[in-house]
């Protein structure tokens, strides 16, 4: 199996950009970052199947199974993965939207532990959000 440099670079860029966006505090960016990362993963799965080839229908090639045909399995798996990502991303968007409706901002909220630490020493964490601030 020969590698494809363009695909490899693209996969790397997608993972990198996805990871960067995932680490942001804005929920929309997190969602987009996850989308890009899963595109990278799907491309990787596709690349794992080797290079493109003829349509892999039974009897459509002369040289028996395998010769010159594309590997259908990764394509089927990628399709499944895309369908799943589609559904989950829709749910995530709905959740982000709901969060925006409830809090009025498009940001990842502090978790309980963060707030407890912030409440313990308020003067040492001037930038930390405190529970009182949110009301």
């Amino acid at each position: 199996m020969t590698g494809n440099l363009t695909l490899a670079l693209l996969i790397g860029v997608l993972y990198g950009v996805g990871t960067y966006l995932l680490l942001q505090r804005t929920l929309t960016r997190v969602v987009i970052g996850l989308g890009l990362m899963s595109h990278g993963a799907n491309l990787l799965l596709l690349a794992a199947g080797g290079s493109a080839g003829a349509v892999p229908f039974a009897g459509s090639t002369d040289g028996g199974a395998g010769a010159g045909t594309a590997d259908p399995l990764p394509q089927a798996m990628v399709l499944t993965a895309i369908v799943i990502t589609f559904g989950v991303t829709a749910f995530l968007l709905a959740l982000a939207f709901r969060s925006w409706l409830l809090t009025g901002e498009d940001a990842v909220q502090d978790d309980v532990e963060d707030r407890r630490i912030a409440a313990l020493e308020p003067e040492e964490h001037p930038h930390a959000a405190r529970p009182e601030d949110e009301a």
């Binding site: 995932l22 929920l27 899963s38 990787l44 799965l45 794992a48 798996m77 989950v88």
Partner: peptide, 22 residues
Amino acid sequence: MTYVVTSLVASVLFVTAVGLVY
């Protein structure tokens, strides 16, 4: 949100792992 995003990252890694095993 925490739960879904964490699980999704795990899922992306899972697809990656499946691709590598394949």
